[in-house]
C-alpha cells in the first residue's frame, strides 16, 4: 500500500492506495466523497468526471497514484464558500437539468470545464462538449438549457424552446 496525497477541494488529503486503486475509488472509499459516481466500466458515461489540475477527467479511468500531488475538484467542492449553489448548480436546478441525480455530478463538472474554456458556448458546442456524459433521464434538453443559462446567455434566444 502506498500513501497518496493530493489537494482535493482545496484541502490537502491523503489515503492509502494499491497500484490498482482508481482515482474514483480514492475519492469515494478513501476520502468518503461519494458524490463522484460510477456508471460504467468502459470510460463512456462520464458520471465520475472530476477536475484534475483544472481539466475534466474520468476519475474511473485514472489511477490514484498517477495523479499523486494533483489538485482535484469534485462535486463536493463546487458550491459557493457559503454553501449556496454555484451559478452552474443553480442553473441545473432552475432549468430542471437533473432527474435521478446520478449523472449530475459528472454533468456539472463537465459543464464547469466547458464554461471555463468557452464562457459563451452555442447550443451545438454545449452538446458536443457533453458527448462524454450520458444522461438517461432528461433527454439533455434541460441540461443544455441549464449550461446556456449558466453562461449568462438568454436561453430562449440561443436554444429553441
Amino acid at each position: 500500500m502506498t500513501k497518496v496525497t493530493m489537494t482535493v477541494n482545496g484541502k490537502t488529503v491523503s489515503a492509502m492506495t494499491e497500484g490498482r486503486t482508481l482515482l474514483s475509488s480514492y475519492l469515494r472509499e478513501g476520502l468518503g466523497l461519494t458524490g463522484t459516481h460510477i456508471g460504467c466500466d468502459t470510460s463512456q458515461c462520464g458520471a465520475c468526471t472530476v477536475h484534475v489540475d483544472g481539466v475534466a477527467v474520468k476519475s474511473c479511468s485514472v489511477f490514484a497514484q498517477d495523479v499523486a500531488g494533483a489538485t482535484v475538484t469534485t462535486i463536493e467542492g463546487m458550491a459557493n464558500a457559503d454553501g449556496s449553489l454555484s451559478v452552474i448548480q443553480q442553473a441545473f436546478q432552475d432549468h430542471h437539468g437533473l432527474q435521478c441525480g446520478y449523472c449530475t455530478p459528472g454533468m456539472v463538472m463537465a459543464s464547469a470545464a466547458l464554461l471555463a474554456s468557452n464562457p459563451s458556448p452555442t447550443e451545438g458546442e454545449v452538446r458536443h462538449y457533453l458527448e462524454g456524459n450520458i444522461c438517461r433521464c432528461t433527454g439533455y434538453h434541460n441540461i443544455v438549457k441549464a449550461v446556456l443559462a449558466a453562461s449568462g446567455q438568454d436561453v430562449a434566444a440561443v436554444a429553441a424552446e
Binding site: 461519494t34 441525480g101 449530475t104
Partner: peptide, 16 residues
C-alpha cells in the same frame, strides 16, 4: 416549483 431534492444531488450529497 423547483425541485427540493436537487440540492442534495447537485452538491454530491445524494445517498445512493
Amino acid at each position: 416549483t423547483k425541485r427540493r431534492e436537487d440540492i442534495r444531488f447537485l452538491t454530491g450529497k445524494g445517498r445512493y
